[in-house]
């Protein structure tokens, strides 16, 4: 089979990680209509598909020998597992950005820095205010000042010079299109 469903533990790990990122139980609600699968490949990539996709994917998997054919993507890639830990991927941003409450909006200069793959120093009162309620090491979604989703970052708010660690950003579409996808 070219794909397989996630185990209960894996589903729990994905659901918890994304709910924490969204600061709500939105992922739990999403999973009532959708389901999670892994596609056979080099990494344990996790895709969110519709429940009614499963018969189609099963049909596709059964009809051709694997040497002639592979499924390389199915609807929404959310992330991947490394050593049983689920990590979020940039591919999820279009789907998750309307759902998140844990977010920061950067000014123009910081936006440019962030999409070039750099970390961002929190050096204005406006940025400080946006992160002061967040726990240390929280993963958040980063937006531009006109609400364009830019990527994911980890917050270091309690340090002397607070900063955002760039986990992944949309600049990857230019920097490493061939290797990243």
């Amino acid at each position: 089979m070219l794909f397989k469903p996630l185990t209960k533990d894996e589903i729990k790990e994905v659901e918890t990680t994304i709910n924490q990122l969204l600061d709500s139980d939105a992922m739990t609600i999403v999973l009532k209509r959708r389901t999670l699968i892994k596609i056979k490949g080099d990494r344990s990539d996790v895709y969110l598909v519709l429940k009614e996709d499963i018969p189609l994917l099963e049909r596709l998997s059964s009809k051709l020998p694997e040497k002639n054919f592979s499924i390389v993507h199915a609807r929404i890639k959310l992330g991947f597992f490394i050593h049983e830990k689920f990590l979020i991927a940039i591919e999820s941003i279009s789907f998750l950005s309307p759902l998140t409450r844990k977010r920061i909006s950067l000014d123009t200069k910081s936006t440019q820095k962030f999409i070039y793959g750099k970390d961002v120093v929190i050096n204005t009162i406006s940025l400080q205010k946006q992160i002061e309620h967040l726990e240390e090491n929280a993963t958040i979604m980063v937006f531009s000042d006109n609400n364009i989703p830019l990527g994911y970052a980890k917050v270091f708010s309690k340090e002397k010079n607070p900063w955002l660690q760039n986990l992944v950003d949309v600049g990857i579409f230019l920097r490493s299109e061939k290797s990243a996808f």
């Binding site: 049909r59 596709l60 009809k63 054919f69 592979s70 499924i71 789907f95 996808f181």
Partner: peptide, 27 residues
């Protein structure tokens, strides 16, 4: 993949397949 992801396309299944084999998928 990169273009579809960047453009926020969420309804696509991508297959690496020679299209002349498309009928063998029986869909």
């Amino acid at each position: 993949k990169a273009n579809l992801i960047r453009m926020g396309v969420l309804n696509t299944i991508i297959l690496n397949l020679d299209s002349v084999l498309f009928p063998k998928l029986d869909i």
